[in-house]
Design a protein around this nucleic acid. Structure first.
Ligand SMILES: [Mn+2]
Ligand SMILES: [Mn+2]
Ligand SMILES: [Mn+2]
Ligand SMILES: [Mn+2]
Lengths: 220, 220
DNA sequence: CAATTATGTTAGATGAATCTAACAATATAC
DNA sequence: GTATATTGTTAGATTCATCTAACATAATTG
């Protein structure tokens, strides 16, 4: 069984993987906030347990066993976040840190009960998909708000970043998942946009914000 | 901040303390399922952090800081057990192992929400008191069923032992906290007793079982 | 393509939590 | 009150997860 530390490495590896499934040692060191030699020795350990493939001077790649394990930890994380929001009254900006700890609890029944009590949700409070019990993830291809043309109407469906600061910014503007946004105009100079939505007739959003808002186009 | 390992030592120390607050190294080693040298080095570490008083060849004693810390971990454990039973539908025999892990989560709000959602319970699913936020425990002096005379009527209020096996035994006899028991007779030879209760007109309970059933006398 | 920069590895050390083997102190029993 | 048993300590080793310093390889760029 993977240690708590190893589980966190697996999650980072899963999230950092490029389309070919590769992860650089330096990116992993940066993500985990440890030195490269630490990562170097950890990837050797993870390889010995069959979680990944490692060859000197090459980027590492999770094995399918490693991918599944990572996805199942992410499943526990996201189920927990959803449970905290839906069943315990937490705000979406409060749950990540708690889930970061609870994802390491070994108690299959706990997470099954959460799942059951919530009616088997498929997304977490930030719009990210919850992997199923087999570790399969249903990737949904949302569009970034920064790619949408003026005049269109979209629904806020997910976030490309879920940091507390960003979530608190969204709270301050009453923006939540499901909000219907009308793109009124786009500024050519700085790529900021002006949107209108419930009780907010004209709100300006910077490019930095728009990039992180993932939306679905409303075809009426 | 105490590590998960240190937290488990603090809990054991709290539970093993005799009326003078003293704990033997060998009892602690036995409880923690580690060797005596391991305990010896750990108590030195715990002393350095101010959790306990240690002098060579003498039993150790938790400081008041150590007692409070232990009580607050026990609080998290018992709140969790109660939450799992009352809010998530677990049986009282399923929750200890999960609580053993969740008690180490650092998230004050999580436990405050549990507490709130349950209406600030004062006992856990096994009848043990839940320490308050200041780490104070309200000790209730129940009587062991083995001390009760024939002819009396009592209410099952708590358990002196909450092992899964014992809880499953109680489940098999439909015995739960709050059950009203009529002591019909006592066997002088083996100290077993015969009780009657809801749908059980005559159930024999061994001395071993009676010792672990804590009751309140019903004064009608 | 040579120089510079970025990325990755080795070596050696540290602190936490554990072990076994050997020894020391204290308590108990005859 | 000495012998025996119980309890506790020291010494030395191990594994895990981390570090820094030094060195090696690979990629980028003028
Ligand atoms: Mn999260
Ligand atoms: Mn984590
Ligand atoms: Mn318990
Ligand atoms: Mn524990």
């Amino acid at each position: 069984m993977a240690s708590q530390t190893e589980e966190n490495y697996l999650k980072s590896l899963f999230n950092l993987a490029n389309p070919q499934g590769e992860v650089n040692i330096s990116d992993l060191a940066n993500q985990m906030q440890v030195s490269m030699p630490t990562v170097n020795s950890m990837v050797k350990t993870l390889q010995k347990s069959g979680w990944l493939i490692y060859e000197k001077y090459k980027p590492v790649t999770l094995t399918s066993k490693g991918q599944k394990e990572a996805a199942l930890i992410i499943r526990k994380h996201r189920l927990t976040e959803m449970f905290l929001v839906n069943k315990m009254g937490f705000g979406w900006e409060e749950v990540h840190e708690i889930a970061e700890q609870i994802e390491h609890i070994h108690a299959p029944k706990l997470f099954e009960r959460m799942d059951e009590m919530m009616g088997f949700p498929t997304i977490d409070p930030h719009g990210s998909p919850i992997p199923d019990k087999q570790g399969r993830i249903q990737e949904i291809n949302y569009l970034s708000l920064s790619k949408i043309k003026a005049g269109q109407t979209v629904i806020l469906a997910a976030l490309a970043n879920s940091s507390t600061e960003f979530l608190e910014f969204l709270n301050s503007r009453n923006l939540s998942l499901g909000t219907e946004l009308h793109i009124l105009s786009k500024e050519a100079y700085d790529h900021s946009i002006v949107v209108s939505y419930l009780n907010h007739p004209g709100e300006t959003l910077s490019e930095k914000v728009c990039e992180k808002l993932l939306v679905q186009i409303l075809d009426i």
